[in-house]
């Protein structure tokens, strides 16, 4: 009990004390423990090594491990903050924290900017947005002519790229999403409010004395 993780939990590289994680995030200790139940299930779905690899992440997302998806890859890379090719429990909780309904709006804006800045240059460039649109069309089997794609890009950059330099910087992005709040909808997961109800088994595996914290 208390703050010393059991041998079972030490099998999880990157396992962190739920009390510490709760103090750094919008989650309560119980919610962090419920997230551990979800983490255990995802991280053992292909290789039971206590870490989530890309295949396991895609399997959890699509229920199909063969589906390659630009956006799922991008989300995985942003969760994998230490760039180890795997997500440990600490990474998982801290990244999901951004999606909590109570997380600061600024964190959501930052995360979404990084998500769309595919090559990490600090700008969302037109060629990146085009690449994402083409990936979406491929995924959804939606048919749009190249001319329509260019029209969509023209319209988007006319609205978002205020200084018209052909790329969207962080400030332009923050202003653009404040005028189009629906763009941040994907950055909030209402599920995170009910995580202890979704994974009630955390109660039986809790290692914290007072789980009501």
């Amino acid at each position: 009990m208390g703050c010393f993780p059991s041998r079972a939990r030490r099998q999880y590289p990157g396992y962190e004390d739920p009390v510490v994680l709760a103090s750094q995030t919008a989650f309560s200790v119980s919610e962090v423990e419920a997230l551990f139940e979800l983490f255990k299930s995802i991280s053992s779905s292909v290789v039971d090594d206590g870490l989530i690899n890309k295949e396991e992440f895609q399997l959890a997302l699509f229920k199909n491990r063969k589906k390659e998806n630009l956006f799922a890859n991008r989300i995985f890379d942003l969760f994998d903050v230490k760039q180890k090719g795997v997500i440990d429990f600490g990474d998982f909780v801290r990244a999901l924290n951004v999606f909590h309904p109570n997380a600061p709006q600024e964190d959501k804006v930052d995360f979404s900017f990084k998500l769309y800045d595919l090559d990490g240059t600090g700008f969302i460039e037109r060629k990146e947005v085009k690449q994402m649109l083409i990936a979406l069309l491929y995924e959804s089997e939606m048919r749009l002519s190249d001319e329509t794609v260019e029209l969509i890009l023209d319209k988007t950059f006319l609205e978002a790229d205020v200084n018209q330099d052909g790329k969207i910087d962080k400030t332009e992005w923050a202003n653009f999403v404040s005028r189009n709040p629906s763009l941040l909808k994907i950055m909030t997961l209402p599920y995170l409010r009910d995580i202890t109800t979704t994974f009630p088994s955390f109660v039986f595996n809790s290692e914290v004395d007072d789980i009501a914290t």
């Binding site: 699509f62 956006f71 989300i75 909808k185």
Partner: peptide, 26 residues
Amino acid sequence: AAPALMNAFELISTSQGLNLGTLFEK
């Protein structure tokens, strides 16, 4: 709205790969 009237990010945000809600579906 018709796709041509939507901005690119509205379209992109409909990707299944960006819908993390499915992680919580058992």
